[in-house]
């Protein structure tokens, strides 16, 4: 009976670690894009960002990632397509 709880915990922790990996990759990529001229600086900044925003405060890191994706990923450009359906007639 408790097997299902084990399964839920297993998949939840798997997805949580995958999510943390995505966050770490995002911060590493950000550091590489902005500091490509210096590999040492890239690794230092990436290390600091990953330590604080993935290990220590993953929720803050996730919020930053989601906000960045919303603003730069172009999802907000879909708003003008969706909003007319909610317009007051």
């Amino acid at each position: 009976m408790l097997g299902i709880i084990d399964d839920i915990v297993f998949w939840a922790s798997t997805f949580w670690f995958l999510w943390l990996f995505v966050l770490a990759y995002f911060f590493y990529q950000w550091a590489r894009d902005h500091l490509a001229f210096s590999p040492i600086l890239t690794m230092s900044v990436a290390g600091i960002l990953i330590y604080y925003l993935v290990f220590q405060y993953p929720i803050a890191g996730g919020a930053i990632f989601i906000l960045y994706m919303l603003v730069y990923g172009g999802l907000l450009y879909l708003l003008p397509l969706v909003l007319p359906f909610f317009k007051k007639r």
């Binding site: 450009y77 708003l79 003008p80 909003l83 909610f86 317009k87 007051k88």
Partner: peptide, 9 residues
């Protein structure tokens, strides 16, 4: 195109 239409609602 995002905020103004949203506020218009």
């Amino acid at each position: 195109f995002g905020l103004y239409p949203l506020l218009r609602i």
